[in-house]
Design a binder for these strands. Structure first.
Lengths: 178, 178, 178, 178
DNA sequence: TTTT
DNA sequence: TTTT
């Protein structure tokens, strides 16, 4: 009924970007979360790092492509999704990924090396690159103009990779009663 | 950047339902969350109940209207929203509400008295009532045919109160690569 | 930095209970979360069920033992934890579990069949069983007296399985300034 | 039953620090969360900033005092808590705060101006200041030596402001079976 | 393997 | 493989 994951951590490597034949863009990142773990008997503590496989689709993949680099600190909200696959030896394997529903870049813009220069050579950014006068995601993130996108909405008429409606979540309080 | 509230609690009274002239439906509920609070000095504990004002719009309002009754146990995910208003003495008041993005009915169907018989007399349910052969929300809730709706998506072409797309959040894993 | 999982779902089978030689109690449950998944092209939807392995320790294990049965609806908050192990063929395997930090029983008490009669034959409940006059967790859950325990606190002086401090998190607002 | 708030945002001013006669330290901060809000009719969007009052106690207050400055980006997890008070005109007022259970500093250390130099003149840090050889919170934050504290645990024997057990939640995986 |  |  509810299957929710919230991560804040650092990305271990530049994102892997793929674009399917259908034109749908996908990104995969590895996110590290480190926590201090306590041993009550020994009165000791040490750090434990957990690595998470996160998959992002469409606009979230595009934000990942454009803004995430090795070392970036990110907020991810998503769902656990198990996947079955067959390895090279023909053995059935089973893995768990986090399917992202939201992504936010954390820290200040200056924290992110070379943000804004997409890594992927497939040229998935035509929609953005040609518009110097109106940067699709604000030309940065942080407080005001943030580089984020809340995915997941049911958006039938919206072509993939269109910069419209970057951050999901409701309507104008001036026009609508809230 | 992130403003998220998650509540699980019981509803203190039947929902207040309103339909605006524009046809947009709204519901308001009061949700109680009780927690045990500890006094470390006295080694005592006691319960504290916090009451939350939750506002739901459109399809979420409709689910609230149809399934929530006094005593219902609900899951709410939403955002904090402050509101300024002027009371009858002309004094400026300020209140905080939770604007719901998701609602799930908890417990078994039998837990909810008279679920399925909407309270609101305004007749906001025409879209559902005339379809005995295809109950809009499964005639119940729980996990299969669930009485829930994740709101918030950017849904320009979707007329208010249409039962389509009840639970936001993605696409068919058979057709899409996840 | 943040590694948080929130689940609401139904338990697929009675919990597996183990007590280590050290006296530490552990429970393992499988929790199903079902969500509706949408195919935007086909305008179709179908349900997907994800199964989650949840591990609970100490007091949380005890609550699981006493109140969770096949079919129970539960709220779990925890962390993702990967584990490496070697299967019977000597192949290295890797699995992911959710290490619970909080557990709440959802629905009304009557929803849970035979709650209160621990399944585990190991007799780990001596601390509770001998007190018919003062049921350790309120003789039920739901609104007021809830069968829950928020684990995780650093509780050096607290012997395992002592019913003290069921729901972690704070002090008396009368004595402390909040 | 569950009353949880998760915020990521920027702090509007240096924290207000108070130490009670009992020696218990408290901090209050204002956190801004900005979100883009969409007007489906007008196909427009604009930003809305919500300000949150967050109260932190004991070790969390101390971390706030030492590391939070105007502009800091923070992660807060906590609970909604309403408070009644009487204003200067004798009118009963009612406000809502977020009582923090967890705090993490986001971004890189260099993002936070003058971190490590506590603002509060009350000298609440004696416990830390006198230990140049073993900085209580690593002299920085981030994931390794992080400036955070997950509050809330039931910690009867633990004197306030002792640096012990900074991040609640569990034991050594080498010694304990998880 | 749950739930509806 | 990140971060400090």
């Amino acid at each position: 009924m509810i299957n929710k994951v919230i991560l804040i951590g650092n990305v271990g490597a530049d994102p892997e970007i793929r674009t399917l034949e259908s034109g749908v863009k996908m990104a995969r990142i590895r996110v590290a979360t480190t926590e201090r773990i306590y041993n009550r008997e020994a009165q000791e503590s040490r750090d434990h790092t957990e690595w998470h496989s996160v998959v992002l689709w469409r606009n979230l993949a595009d934000v990942a492509d454009r803004f995430i680099r090795k070392g970036s600190q990110v907020y991810i909200e998503g769902r656990l999704r198990s996947r079955e696959w067959t390895d090279q030896q023909g053995v059935k394997r089973y893995s768990i990924e986090i399917l992202a529903d939201d992504l936010k870049m954390l820290g200040r813009r200056s924290d992110n090396p070379s943000a804004g220069q997409p890594l992927s050579p497939q040229g998935g950014q035509q929609g953005y690159g040609g518009q110097p006068s109106q940067p699709a995601y604000g030309g940065g993130y942080g407080q005001g103009g943030n580089a984020s996108y809340s995915g997941g909405g049911y958006q039938p008429q919206q072509p993939a990779q269109t910069p419209a409606a970057p951050e999901v979540n409701l309507d104008d309080p001036d026009d609508l009663p809230f």
